[in-house]
Structures are given as structure tokens and as C-alpha cells.
Amino acid sequence: IRKQWHEDITQDLRNHLVHKLVQAIFPTPDPAALKDRRMENLVAYARKVEGDMYESANNRAEYYHLLAEKIYKIQKELEEKRRT
């Protein structure tokens, strides 16, 4: 379902936000690492998460909020795993 606010969101912005999700899960300073085949699954997962939020959000603010919440949860989980 195409929503009115979707018209304001460019593909570049969506790609940028997918990249932010990927960085939250696997922070790497090396952009070449993103071309690694093992990263493809991670990028696919991040695209799916972003797509789900894009579809479920009712406006741009909610879209950003859902993504920020997801990134926060991912970082929290990773922190907890590092501690144990």
C-alpha cells in the first residue's frame, strides 16, 4: 500500500537507513566489507527490517522512530551478549 508520506522518502534515504541498521549490527569502518558475501545476508535482513517499518509506519516521524527503536534494541542486545 502506497502511503502519501512515501512520496517524500527517496531511495537514497532508504538505502542510507538500511546502511545505518547494518552498522548497528556489524560496525565496520571498511566499506569494502559490505561487498563481502557474508554481509549479503546481513544487508538483506536490514532491508527487510527497513521495508517492514516503511510499510507499517503511518508517517515519516513514525518511520524514523521505529528504525531508531530497532537500532537501539539491536545495540542493547549486542552489548548484553558482549558482557556474558
Rank of each mutant, 00 (worst) to 15 (best):
I1N: 14
I1E: 12
I1R: 05
I1K: 11
R2C: 02
R2A: 03
R2W: 05
R2H: 11
R2N: 13
K3S: 09
K3V: 01
K3T: 05
Q4T: 14
Q4R: 10
Q4K: 13
W5T: 06
W5E: 11
E7I: 03
E7V: 03
E7K: 11
E7L: 07
D8F: 06
D8P: 01
D8C: 04
D8R: 03
I9E: 01
T10I: 00
D12E: 15
D12Q: 06
D12A: 08
D12L: 06
L13V: 14
L13H: 11
L13M: 14
L13K: 05
R14H: 00
R14N: 05
R14P: 02
R14A: 00
R14K: 00
R14C: 00
R14G: 04
N15D: 15
N15S: 04
H16Q: 15
H16S: 12
H16W: 01
H16V: 09
L17W: 15
V18I: 09
V18R: 01
V18K: 00
H19W: 11
H19G: 09
H19V: 03
H19D: 14
K20E: 07
K20N: 03
L21E: 03
L21C: 00
L21T: 00
V22F: 02
V22H: 00
V22T: 03
Q23D: 13
Q23C: 07
Q23K: 08
Q23T: 08
A24Q: 04
A24K: 00
I25W: 13
I25R: 03
I25T: 03
I25C: 09
I25N: 07
F26V: 13
F26S: 15
P27D: 10
P27S: 10
P27T: 07
T28W: 05
T28L: 09
T28F: 05
T28K: 12
P29C: 14
D30N: 14
D30Q: 08
D30P: 04
D30C: 05
D30L: 05
D30Y: 10
P31D: 12
P31E: 13
A33P: 11
A33R: 11
A33M: 14
A33G: 12
A33V: 07
L34V: 10
L34N: 12
L34Y: 11
K35D: 15
K35N: 12
D36V: 02
D36W: 07
D36H: 09
D36S: 12
R37L: 10
R37N: 07
R37C: 12
R37D: 09
R37K: 09
R38G: 13
R38E: 14
R38F: 07
M39N: 06
M39A: 03
M39R: 06
E40A: 06
E40P: 07
E40K: 09
E40F: 04
E40N: 10
N41M: 09
N41F: 11
N41S: 14
N41H: 11
N41T: 03
L42K: 03
L42M: 09
L42S: 06
A44W: 00
A44S: 10
A44G: 05
A44P: 00
A44K: 09
Y45I: 06
Y45S: 02
Y45Q: 04
A46G: 01
A46K: 05
R47M: 03
R47G: 03
K48I: 00
K48C: 01
K48S: 07
V49K: 02
V49Y: 00
E50N: 04
E50V: 00
E50H: 00
E50Y: 00
E50Q: 07
G51P: 02
G51H: 13
G51C: 13
D52W: 02
D52K: 05
M53D: 00
M53G: 01
M53K: 00
Y54H: 04
Y54P: 00
Y54E: 07
Y54L: 02
E55L: 10
E55Q: 08
E55Y: 09
S56G: 13
N58A: 09
N58I: 07
N59C: 05
N59F: 02
N59P: 00
R60W: 03
R60L: 10
A61Q: 14
A61C: 07
A61L: 06
A61K: 11
A61D: 14
A61N: 14
E62C: 00
E62V: 04
E62W: 04
Y63K: 02
Y63V: 00
Y63L: 00
Y63P: 01
Y63E: 02
Y63H: 03
Y64S: 04
Y64L: 15
Y64G: 05
Y64K: 12
H65A: 11
L66F: 10
L66K: 10
L66H: 00
L66R: 08
L67F: 11
L67N: 01
L67I: 12
A68S: 14
A68K: 15
E69C: 05
E69L: 04
E69K: 13
E69R: 08
K70D: 01
I71Q: 05
I71F: 02
I71G: 11
I71S: 08
Y72F: 12
K73I: 08
K73G: 10
I74D: 03
I74A: 14
I74K: 14
Q75L: 01
Q75G: 10
Q75N: 03
Q75R: 13
Q75M: 01
K76F: 12
K76W: 06
K76N: 09
K76T: 12
K76H: 13
K76M: 11
K76I: 14
E77G: 11
E77A: 10
E77R: 11
E77P: 08
L78K: 15
L78I: 11
L78E: 14
L78V: 13
E79H: 06
E79G: 10
E79P: 14
E80Q: 08
E80F: 07
E80D: 10
E80R: 06
K81R: 11
K81Q: 12
K81L: 06
K81C: 03
R82G: 12
R83Q: 13
R83I: 13
R83S: 15
R83T: 12
R83V: 15
R83H: 15
T84R: 15
T84S: 09
T84M: 06
T84N: 13
